[in-house]
Every structure is written in structure tokens, then in C-alpha cells.
Nucleic acid binder design. Sequence first.
DNA 1: CGGCCCCGCGTTTTT
DNA 2: CGCGGGGCCG
Length: 791
Amino acid sequence: MTKEELLSQLNESQREAVSYCDGASLVIAGAGSGKTRVLTYKIAYLLQEMGLAPWNILALTFTNKAAREMKERIARIVGEERARYLQMGTFHSIFARILRSEAAAIGYQSNFTIYDQADSRSLVKNIIKEMQLDEKQYKPASVADQISMAKNHVILPEAFAGCSLYDNKHPLVTDIYKRYVERCRQANAMDFDDLLVQTFLLFEHHEDIRRKYVEKFHFVLVDEYQDTNYAQQRILLQLTRERQRVCVVGDDAQSIYSFRGANIDNILNFRGAYTNARLFKLEQNYRSTQLIVEAANSLIRKNERQIPKDVYSHNEHGEKLQLKPAYSDREEAIIVCKDIRRIMREDHCEYSDFAILYRTNAQSRSFEEQMRKDGIPYRIYGGLSFYQRKEIKDVIAYFRTVCNPDDEEAMRRIINYPTRGIGNTTVQKVVDCAMQHGVSLFSVISMPVFYQLDVTKGTAAKLETFRQQIEAWRTKLDTEDAYTLGHAIIMESGISKDIYSSRNPEDLSRQENLEEFVAGMQDFVESRREEDQGDHVQLGDFLQEVALLTDLDSDSDEEQARVSLMTVHAAKGLEFPTVFVVGLEENIFPSPMCTGSMRQLEEERRLLYVAITRAEKHCILTCAQNRFRYGTLENDPPSRFIRDIDPKLLHVEGESAEAERPWRRSAGQQDWMQNPRPVATQFLADPKPRAVAKPKPEPPVDPFSQDFKRLLHTASGGRYKPVASVAPSAAVSASHSCGLREGSMIEHQRFGIGKVVRLEGTGDNEKATVEFRNAGTKQLLLKFAKYKVID
DNA sequence: CGGCCCCGCGTTTTT
DNA sequence: CGCGGGGCCG
């Protein structure tokens, strides 16, 4: 591709951003303005026009998926060969690689383990217990979050007491933090935040090493810059302050990750850090209709902290945003399902053209149920990651122990799994002993006599057997590939036996998960072998990959079109012709956890902005007046953000009933949010039957029955009326999230054609019993099964 | 040491 | 309501 051809693919502002390579630049890319396009073309431009070698370009992204997709797109422009050597990946994966090769300089071994959030929390919890603190006062999760936040701001334990995170009610967090850091070191482990902090410290204390990487990376690009935290910003500065050859791309209006340390000031003040930085704005939105863009603009304009910009669209006018009030979460789901059917008829589109976005994962439930009833195929993203499932974590803990026997959290997990008679008492003795001598658990187990470990003969023998088993696998680390060794560990450790001899035969999902995991391991080894040729793929390589991989990254070779259900956070970077933003009530969106500070409220508002701007053609908001949560009925007013949207751009269903819709009252009138909530709950049975001998004849109230509607009507003083008379859908034969019904014919990737004879389970545990023509009867865990519905 | 029962708790989430 | 952790008992 010539320079002219390359640049002709871009609009004027994109072209300017791409071709400016002389110094630092900040590209503010409005929603749908072709941000990824600019990044890919810019890298192509650097390669072709500026003559940079691919290994001299560093591109940092936030997800593996983003990195992979961008690499593919660049390969299409400049060819596989050159794209392959680009230094492209997430902050964490790139820095993990650097840290492994420079481990010695900071006193680590290069086989260090990466602790995930669960490991961090568990370690914090152990420390709190050992310090004999009250777990009510020092909640492990919250302390772990504080430590994480401190690290994101590069505040080391010594400085913690003086920082703003420190609060007088919990003075001992400082000590917990100190111990935590020590323990990570003893375990030769880094948590996710360490991958940043340690990289920063490495560059800060070892100028020679910093120079080496400055020399290596001639140009640095950062995607989603609005989501970087302080540590990331500092490292970026370390790498680029001499050359100033850096380009960051982002949208301050889409900064929604402050809860994990992202700091919107990074992008707002970029030109404070790089004084000569040029600013480019991409303001033309190619994704959405004009009315959607304008409605989103009207919302985000209510925020004070932002870089002024004027996002516009030249696409068709389109229709207004729709607001559809519902009585209950169940009716909300019914409305959405009806609308999906309606729009499919009108627009002749597929299930995969729809997304349902919500604030919290728990909200998926009502939609799941309704879509199953209606036979609408769907896929839920997020929730529990595959790698967070117990059986998978156990296997990984074995792998981790074999690669790095000092890994305390992994050791604790597997030392008595499967049960081998090493109970809590023994574990605690080993831990105490290790702490006393300042060594790892494995050191104590290896030399119990030397460390004067006080256990009975029998226990000592059990520990020794365990140690020998680990050591035996360790000798194979260099000679066997990840798959062979991993498979051996699963078989020989007794994990396999434990899972397959499980007393409840219904518990088949664990087996399938394990099989999926083993298959994934095999795939990994094979694909890596092709890439790197020759060298065999070690277990450690697999662990490195897995530690930084998530569910969303996994291959989604969708055979079947399905409606996507996910949180707004998970939807960032995606787009859909039709988007439903559901649950727009106070105490849901904005989340009740945000205390109302302006910063937090503005972030919640940006979150809604992100949700709306995912939509290409239709954007439909829903709001339920009553919602079951934790078994009780909640009744919240509509979200305050609804009032932030320009009323001219919002069509409320049942407009005629305006007077009765509290959120349509003009400003100045008494604030509807301050009105006492209508209490429908009082008409319902007390959800927790206490010992109090009260006559409690109330049968459970079906939230969709006529009775319930009447209750709501009375409770609200007649204010709430049905938005649409929606009959509960007639009993539909058992059907499935994947569009399956009993009797469906499917074509399975491995087993061929078969007939579904039974469906059971919900959510991730949905299983189908299928009679295959040529492969007999099989049970499939639908989350992982690869198949197509043919009838 | 292991299983069972009861109590408490419950934003967003990537790496 | 549903899950996970802690405590108690065999």
C-alpha cells in the first residue's frame, strides 16, 4: 500500500493524527469515531513511511482481545511477517515479560507466579488472621482493595501511613500491607499490581535497564488511555520522556474504571506531562444515527470534568431514544423480548444484532428466564470466569506449585486436595514455622528437621510423600511439554479420580470444565509450537498465558446468532444495531455504592453514555418500578440520569400519561426523589419467617399475577398503571438459551448430527442429552459445546 | 480430620 | 434467594 492509498482510507482529522509522528500526541477519539482505525493505520504508517522496525514499536492495550484484533488488522495492511514482531499486548503481559527477563535485578526469580485477585485476598485474609485482628473491622476484601489502590498510585508500605488512603480507623492496614509485600516476595509471587509497580521500580532504580528499553521502544502507543492509572502513566513517562515519541488514544467521556485505579486526570492533564504534546480530536461518529449521538451528547454535557468536544454523525437521522417503563423486572424482560421480536421482523436482522446491557451481573436473571421461555437464543458474557472455577483453579494451583514451589497460595490450595490427611492444624504449623524462619512453605516441608517442624511421624511421612510427588514433576519441567506434563499431573495427583468418581453424577459440569481445560492446554501447545518452531512449550509458558487471560478473550467462534447479555463495563469497545439499557432506576444505575460525590456520579453518567453509544440504530432504555432482589421487593424511582437526556430526544412510552410519570416533572417542582418511596413491600409476606408467631397465611405472591398488579396499584395510590398489557407468555415447551428445544436436531463439531432428548440446568450449567447418529448418546455442557442448530 | 448446618452477606471488573 | 465460610459435632 502506498502512502497515498494508506492515507486515503482516513478522514481529515484521522489523517492528521496518523501522520504526526514528531512528538507526543493525544488523540481524543469520540465514541464510534474510528479510534482503532487510527491506531492501526498509525502503526502501519510508522512501519512504512517512517521506516521503523516492528520490534521497535510498543503498543499497549487493556485487553488481550484488543491487542490480538489490532495485530490482525495491521497484518492485513503491512503483511503477517512484519506485524508478527510488533511489541503489542496489555500493559500487564508486556511488563510481565520484561520482569521475567530482568527478575534478578529486583530480587525475584524469573519463574515467579502471578497472583490473581483471589490469591491476593486470600493472602490478606491469612495475614489478618495471623495478626489476630477482627475480620469485621478489617475486612479482607476491602483491605486488599486498599493495598491494590495504594500500589496503583505507587504508594509503597513505608509511605502508606501518610497518604490519603490511610484512615485512622484502620491504622493497622499499613502493617498488613508490609507483611503482604514480604509474603509475596517469600512466595516468589507478584500480584497484578506488582506487574506495574515492580516495573516502575525496576526502571527507577536501574537506569541501565531503563535505557535499554528506551533504546528498544522507539515509538510507544497506548490505547484506552482514559483507563490508565498513575503507575501506568509513570512507566509510560519513564519510557518516553527523552524521545517524546508517544501517542495515546482515548476518550475521557468513556473513563469508567476508576474503581480499579484508573485516573481520568491522566488524559485530562496529558499535556501537563508532555508539554509540547499535540492534541487531535476525532469527532465524527460513524457508528450511530444522529439522534442517538445527540441524545448521548445531551447526557454527557451534564458532566463538568471533560475535554470539550463536539461529536456528530452524518448517518441517517434515525429514531429517538425510547424509554419504556415496566412494573417489575419480569415485565421489563417481557417488554425487551417482545421488542427483539418486533425489531427482527421490521429490520430483518439476526439475534446477534441485539445486546442487553445492565449495571450489575445479577440483573441478567430475569432476562435469562424470559428468553428461555420465548426460545430466544442468548449468550451471557462475564460472570464467573472459566479460570475462576474451583476445579480449574485447583489444577492451576498444581501447575503453579510445580513451576514455583514457593508459591504459598497455590501450596495451601493443594496441600490437602485431594484429601491426603494433611489438615488445617498441620498447615498452620507449617505456616507458623515458615514465618518464623522467613522462608517459604515448601522450604519447611523440604527440610522439616532443620526448621524444627513439630509434627507427628505419620504427618511427617504424608508431607514427605507430597513433596516427593511435586519434586518428581519438577524434574520433568524441562523435558516434557506443557500438555504432557499437565496431563500427567492431573492423572497422578488424584484430581482426575476425585472429579470423575464424584458421588453426585449430576455434577458433570466439573468434568466437562476439566476436559475443556485440557483441550485448551493442548491447543495452546500446538499453536505455540507452530509460532516458535522447535523449542518445546513449557508448563510455565502456559501458566503465564493463563494468568493474564480471561473469559472474554477466549475464542468466540459463534456458530449461532445469539442475543448478547452483559454489563455496561463489558460492552466497552463493542457495538450493536440495537441496544437495550435496562434497569435504569435509582439504586441500580447509579449504583447505591457510589456515595453521591460528583466524581463518582460523573463516572456513572459516563457509564450510561458508554451504554447508549454502543447502539447503531435503536437504543431502548427500560426502567422497572418494582424489582425482586435478594428475595425482597425493591421499589425505586427512575434513574436521575433519565432527566439528563434532552427530552426532545427521548420518547417515553405512554407519553399521554405524562402527569403520572414522576421523572417527567419539570425542575423546580418538589423533587420526586425526596418523596417517600411508595411501599409495596408492606403488602407482601415477610420474606424472612422469623420465630415471631405471626399469622402468616400469605402465599408467595407471583409478581406477575393480577393480584400483584392490584397491590402495586393500591400501594402507589393509583399512580402506576400498566404500560402495556402483556400477558404472561403461554407455557412454552422447555427451550434453551442456545435456541435448543427437546427434539431439536443439532450438528456438533465433533460428534456430528444428533437429536436433543433432554435439557436441564440453568446458566452456565445448562446441559443437553443428545443422541448422536454415529457417536451414541452424549451429555453436553452447552456453554462449551460447539454446535449448530439444524432444525 | 471431614461433613453438615446455619448464618451472613450481596455495586461495576481487567490484568 | 443463593452461595460461601465458619463453627460444631461425629
